[in-house]
Amino acid sequence: MAEMNIVQAINNALELEMKNDESVVVLGEDVGVDGGVFRVTDGLIDKFGEERVIDSPLAEAGIVGTSVGMAINGLKPVAEMQFSGFIYPAMQEVISHAARIRNRTRGVLTCPLVVRLPYGGGIRALEHHSESMEAMFGHIQGIKTVVASNPYNAKGLLIAAIRDPDPVLYMEPKRMYRAMKQDIPDEAYTVPIGETNVVKQGDDITLVSWGAQMEVAQEAIESLGNVSVELIDVQTIYPLDYKPIVESVKKTGKCVILHEAARNFGPAGEIIALLNEHAFTSLEAPIKRVTGYNVPFPLALSENYYLPSAYRVAKAIKEVINY
């Protein structure tokens, strides 16, 4: 066991998988000598050389598009987008090719790549650096999207993503990169993709979240004192493992969903629809959403206006319980 923050856990996962499997390569802008703008890939170039830790030209479509070719020809590329908000030029490669190569060739060719995406607000960054676009990713057929929330699942989900036979978008809560430490196993382990995690049992209400908002959820629960909240970390946006959420809501009868992404057409809407289909008769109150607002993510001085807070979450929980 070693105490690690999220940056160290991801770095450790990359190092273990690169040692374990020669076909794993890391590529992106500044991932080599500089070790990445967040230092996530720090030291890898010294251990594995510049052919496997590639300081690529500055072009996101190029990074993902070449990764598609590499993956088809036997490598397992782990591409880094410096910030998730810079992936848009590469979306054609993600949507039109990475996601579809398996289907297009009936499984003869496959595309096992990973794109790492530092996402979310709260670090006083420039414009385009703070969005949470999991709803867009989760809507792409043939792509898996996972979100880490702590050092333990950051390591386990990344190793699972690298070993997955299909393309995975791996979202990293950059606000939490160094905000928490956990004792995590030294060896490689996986947190399975497609498994929702019930973090804390409770009887009064179900609180569903993921990523950096898991921290906000915990704060809200603490502030509520003796309300028994069942806390769920979705971990995989898609393919969504909705059954544990349904089981939980059948038990509690109440639910709040918390995400940092804007509300419109967001993942909370999807989860509510699934609860409507599978747990309608168990519901004792309308489900509430605590989310970002339907506005462009504000610049640094105003980002706290936008970001969900423990206060907003606790308020929603109280409203649902007192319905």
């Binding site: 598009g65 598609v68 590499m70 490598l75 039109s96 090719h97 297009r104 060739t105 009936r106 060719l109």
Partner: peptide, 30 residues
Amino acid sequence: SRGEPDAHNMPVSVPVGSQPLHAVGLGYAA
């Protein structure tokens, strides 16, 4: 467009200009 394993033919790519990058990646991997 199933193709054969190890035939080293990529399938048809419809979005114009989206496939040259794959060729570069295939070559890098090789």
